[in-house]
């Protein structure tokens, strides 16, 4: 079966655990990272198709991290997750392009819908 490798970045372990629970049994191979600075050392980095990053993290914002990702790995799709999407999108660097944005918290239905759309229609039901 075709797998889509995705990565969630959020400093909050509870939120990461929720995403993990929501994707249980799905077609996605998901990775979870609490320390955004460690992104560049991950062996799976080049295999990723989608990265979802929280906006408010210590040390770096989600939009800053996704811009770095866009410059280094433009083929990886970028999703911003934020409790205040309007503000986060307004404050982002103009050169950053996002493939999607999700409110925080987001439901399993919204998450799967977004992932399915970005991964070309992979069906992801449990």
């Amino acid at each position: 079966m075709l797998m889509s490798n995705i990565l969630f970045i959020d400093d909050d372990a509870f939120i990461l655990n929720a995403y993990q629970r929501m994707l249980r049994g799905s077609v996605y191979q998901a990775f979870y990272l609490q320390q955004p600075a460690q992104l560049w050392q991950q062996a799976y980095l080049t295999s990723l198709t989608i990265v979802l990053a929280d906006q408010q993290m210590p040390g770096i914002t989600g939009t800053e991290l996704l811009l770095q990702l866009q410059l280094e790995y433009p083929e990886i799709k970028r999703v911003l997750i934020s409790g205040d999407l309007t503000l986060a999108i307004k404050q982002r660097a103009p050169e950053l392009t996002l493939d999607a944005a999700l409110p925080k918290p987001c439901s399993k239905a919204a998450l799967l819908d977004c992932l399915q759309r970005l991964s070309g229609g992979l069906t992801a039901t449990t």
């Binding site: 509870f14 655990n17 929720a18 629970r21 929501m22 918290p105 439901s107 399993k108 239905a109 449990t126």
Partner: peptide, 22 residues
């Protein structure tokens, strides 16, 4: 239940116990 898309006792207790701790 709507957020997690799951009404099982396992998911409810996992979510609530984790939430309580954090």
């Amino acid at each position: 239940i709507a957020m997690y898309g799951d009404d099982s006792a396992e998911t409810i207790t996992l979510a609530l116990s984790g939430f309580r701790r954090e």
